[in-house]
Write a protein that binds this DNA or RNA. Structure first.
Length: 916
RNA sequence: GGGCGCGUAGCUCAGUGGGAGAGCACUACGUUGACAUCGUAGGGGUCGCUGGUUCAAUCCCAGCCGCGCCCA
């Protein structure tokens, strides 16, 4: 006998191990079976499971389990990425905490060894946590982006792209993280609005000349007042960069400065002359319309500088301090502009001193408060600095073209489709991708330099040496590039590198292109776009996945994004501990509507947990009543209407769940299964089965036991993708003597023909359900004591109705608390009447009836139907409607009107009868 | 500023060119019952606002208002 409630704790680890030991997580060994493949979005090796992972992986697991039950050869490929910055950060912090030497003192090799040691001990704990969710990944194939095979793939890709001219080295402005002292990509920069200032500086004209500048305007915008100026006013949010200015730009159409273009201003403090140029970038509306140009420290200015031929002068060292000495990287021009007492100052300190000095010089004209967008490193949290350095770049624009086309032509589909726009928007405006990082943890760039700075790119040092020898005619000393690649560079290869590429493995042939990628929208740029580019490029134009399903975020009960600082984080493992993994999964999946964030709250987890209990108790009831799977039971041979009905309903529910899953409508799939299990099987079937089970018809009892068990089996199957543990537990505990022969995880998805759907039985049962519901409603409306019973009289029922009533008399009597069924031409005295489907029935409740309450009830009913009738009549009275609407619609309305009319007539008759 | 999305019951969300739905919450009643982690019944909505298209609009179109996210 089943316990009173399900104990998730005990069941979860037991079944997870059984599943894994059974080999169910691995693709089945059947080369003829259709394949289904998902690669996991690899979590950071440093990561720990948060609710977003829980959602993402539950969705994947639900699909994977469903597809497995369909009999496909299913691979869910798991693994982690090495998370360059994050991992290095973790280990450096550890070193610091232990009071150990820094990584630089330690040296590259020793440091990397240390990181590997950390990875071995505590890396990838997130994958262990995924198991607690029930994730049925093929762990035997677990991969890590720094694995040998994946690293070989990275080298090959780098070298080939370089040969094709799609990877190149260039000196460009990059986003520089002064904390980690590395370049980062645009996507790793978080722009935040902060309170800043707008400083207005006067740069004096170099030749000492003056001009008239308008300071007041009339309604038409014509100047009415002027002042004489011997300077040009520029405004900046970053005063410390002024020493690097190499020009001042005004808009080409700006009349105010027309005569100044081509002249020079004297840059205060630095005391150098810089030209006044024109550029569209200058906004006449902003400040006084002139803008200082610092090509080495601002992305817009860099482009202006290129257009106007202005020099780029770097002021900072890698820690974002003013230069204090000449370096190989920064030329001396920057240093020369920095006064002695400013050298070596941190950028924020430098800002204060520059402003103060400008004030002393009389060049600070105004300071405004201003909201400004400031870039922060998403890992370090420090202000990111645009910085001019030599880096490696991918020509993303070229690689993006076929990746855009693949989505345009529908080879790869986004679900929901709207995300295509986001993808296109980014891909069509893509910038060169900076892939080098000044870190140690990662794939070291396979480029070597000779002492003249010639570059040799090759998969191995030996090959690079050979290239060098060919060039120089002799062996020369080479040094390898110190930098590593962006982690996303290797993640971009994930869909094929994990399958063994560049080897031509069986897995690659079988599973590439993968079926679907499931991820959150914030990762479309980072990862989806890059996988598309690399996959198509290296897999002979073949896309990495057919579908991309984008799910929304998990947010708290108030719709707020979860964050540690807000303290509104839900820990998925805490939920698993308290409610069970199935409840967590079900709450997430059933809330995963497309285009809506998934709100989670204690209520939802509770309600999902209650559902597992309900399911459990339904099975328990079955067990107590002798339900057991019967190998000889043929659903087609069922005789009882109730059984024929529940068999048909099971099949319909299974099909609907499947259809929803195929369309990534996870919430609809889960809720369909929920409603079938609870509101159909438990609420009606089991209730309807009770009179049969308590009766004396042995054949009917045996059939109902078998059919009830059969339908429960279908419920377990269709719920398994969402709630694997409780369904597996029940599958095994309800196995009966015959046993199951297979775990539920490996069982078949329900697949039955239409011949098992008996519409006549469905009509019977729907009639019964309507009737019972109406009787209950009438009784409740009249405050009839629940325990009271009464005879039910069918008024003026035809033969078919009488037959049906007799056929279903047992369940009707039990569910509606009816003592006996009678047939009559008119409702008897002291009875309550109601109309269902155009037929009148009466309950002879004798003195239990409050006649006034009954009058009120009937009047209210009538009112409702009158309103309906008015609406239909109005519609049908509209000639244009009758003329223009499709015939079927008009006929439908006529039918509805007739039904409503019949209902009303019967109710009026009932009313008349009541008043005698 | 550009893009995307949302606005339907107290809350969270489905939904469809032709009779407004679910879950939760709420109210009343209920322990013969597998289940009180439950059952039965009930109340509750001018489908954001304003126009347009249409015989017919919550749904399609335009504008507006409000909210959220992404990008600049």
């Amino acid at each position: 006998m089943l316990d009173k409630t399900f104990d998730p704790q005990a069941a979860e680890s037991r079944w997870y191990d059984e599943w894994e030991d059974s080999g169910a997580f691995q693709p089945k060994d059947d080369p003829d079976a259709k394949t289904f493949c998902i690669v996991i979005p690899p979590p950071n090796v440093t990561g720990s499971l948060h609710i977003g992972h829980a959602l993402n992986n539950t969705l994947q697991d639900s699909l994977v389990r469903y597809q497995r039950m369909l009999g496909k050869r299913v691979l869910w490929q798991p693994g982690t990425d090495h998370a360059g910055i994050a991992t290095q950060m973790v280990v450096e912090r550890q070193l610091a905490a232990e009071g150990n030497i820094s990584r630089r003192d330690m040296g590259r090799e020793a440091f990397i060894e240390r990181v590997w040691k950390w990875k071995g001990q505590s890396g990838g704990s997130i994958l262990r946590q995924l198991r607690r969710l029930g994730a049925s990944c093929d762990w035997s194939r677990e991969r890590f982006t720094l694995d040998e095979g994946l690293s070989a793939a990275v080298l090959k890709v780098f070298v080939e792209l370089h040969e094709q001219g799609l990877i190149y080295r260039d000196k460009r402005l990059v986003n520089w993280d002064p904390h980690f002292q590395t370049a980062i990509s645009d996507l790793e920069v978080e722009n935040k609005e902060i309170d800043g200032h707008f400083w207005h500086f006067a740069y004096p004209l170099a030749d000492g000349s003056t001009y008239e500048f308008p300071i007041a305007h009339d309604e038409d915008g014509k100047p009415t007042e002027w002042e004489t100026r011997d300077y040009i006013l520029v405004a900046t949010t970053r005063p410390e960069t002024m020493l690097g200015d190499t020009g001042v730009a005004v808009h080409p159409d700006d009349e105010r400065y027309k005569d100044l273009v081509g002249k020079k201003v004297r840059l205060p403090i630095a005391d150098v002359e810089i030209p006044i140029v024109t550029d569209e970038h200058a906004d006449p509306e902003q400040g006084a319309g002139a803008v200082k140009i610092t090509p080495a420290h601002d992305f817009n200015d860099f482009m202006v500088g290129q257009r106007a031929g202005l020099a780029s002068i770097n002021l900072f060292d890698p820690e974002a301090r003013f230069l204090s000495e000449a370096t190989a990287e920064a030329d001396d021009k920057g240093l020369a502009r920095i006064p002695e007492d400013f050298r070596g100052l941190d950028r924020f300190e430098a800002r204060k001193k520059i402003v103060a000095r400008m004030d002393e010089l009389g060049c600070l004209k105004a300071v405004e408060d201003k909201k400004i967008m400031q870039p922060f490193g998403d890992r370090s949290g420090v202000v990111v600095e645009p910085y001019l350095t030599d880096q490696w770049f991918v020509d993303a624009e070229t690689l993006a073209k076929p990746a855009i086309e693949a989505v345009e032509t529908g080879k790869t589909k986004f679900v929901p489709k709207n995300w295509e726009k986001t993808y296109f928007e980014w891909m069509r405006n893509i910038e060169p991708w900076c892939i080098s990082r000044q870190l140690w943890w990662g794939h070291r760039i396979p480029a070597w330099y000779d002492e003249n700075g010639n570059i040799f790119v090759a998969e191995t040092e030996a090959a690079a040496q050979a290239q060098a020898k060919e060039k120089h005619g002799k062996d020369v000393a080479l040094t390898q590039d110190e930098d590593v690649l962006d982690t996303w560079f290797s993640s971009a290869l994930w869909p094929f590198s994990t399958l063994g590429w560049p080897e031509e493995t069986d897995e690659l042939k079988a599973f590439y292109p993968t079926t679907v990628l499931i991820t959150a929208f914030d990762i479309i740029f980072f990862w989806v776009a890059r996988m598309m580019m690399q996959g198509i490029h290296f897999m002979d134009g073949e896309i990495p996945f057919h579908d991309v399903f984008i799910h929304r975020l998990v947010v708290d009960a108030n719709g707020q994004k979860m964050s540690k600082s807000k303290g509104n984080v839900t820990d998925p493992l805490d939920i698993v501990d308290r409610y069970g993994a199935d409840a967590l999964r079900f709450a997430l999946v059933s809330g995963a509507a497309q285009n809506a964030n998934i709100r989670v709250s204690e209520d939802r987890f509770e309600s999902a947990r209650n559902f597992t209990t309900k399911l459990w108790n339904a099975a328990r009831f079955g067990q107590m009543n002798g339900f057991a799977p019967d190998p000889d039971f043929n659903p087609a041979d069922a005789k009882q209407a109730v059984n024929r009905w529940i068999i048909g309903e099971s099949i319909k529910a299974g099909r609907e769940v499947a259809r929803n899953l195929e369309n990534y409508r996870f919430n609809d799939a889960a809720n369909t299964a929920y409603r079938f299990a609870w509101n159909v099987y438990c609420d009606w079937f089991l209730e309807l089965a009770k009179p049969i089970l308590n009766g004396e018809d042995e054949a009917a009892i045996a059939e109902t036991r078998a059919a009830g068990a059969w339908a429960l089996d279908q419920i377990l199957r269709i719920l398994h993708p969402f709630m694997p543990f409780v369904t597996e537990e029940l599958w095994n505990k309800t196995a009966g003597e015959a046993g199951r022969g297979t775990l539920l995880i490996s069982a078949d998805w329900p697949d039955f023909g239409d011949d098992l759907i008996d519409e006549a039985a469905a009509a019977d049962l729907n009639w019964l359900i309507d009737l019972v519901t109406e009787i209950r409603s009438v009784r409740a409306g009249l405050n009839v004591p629940p325990a009271a019973t009464a005879p039910l009289i069918f008024v003026g029922a035809d033969q078919a109705a009488q037959d049906r009533a007799k056929r279903l008399s047992e369940p009707l009597r039990r569910l509606a608390r009816v003592t006996e069924l009678e047939f009559a031409d008119a409702a008897p005295e002291k009875s309550v009447q109601a109309v269902v489907g155009g037929s009148t029935f009466a309950l002879r409740l004798e003195d239990l009836v409050d006649l006034d309450a009954e009058r009120a009830r009937l009047a209210k009913e009538l009112e409702k139907w009158d309103a309906e009738i008015t609406r239909f009549e109005k519609k049908l009275g509209n000639e244009k409607f009758v003329a223009n609407a499709p015939e079927a619609v008009v006929a439908g309305e006529r039918e509805k009107l007739a039904e409503a009319q019949a209902q009303k007539d019967k109710l009026e008759a009932a009313q008349a009868r009541l008043d005698g």
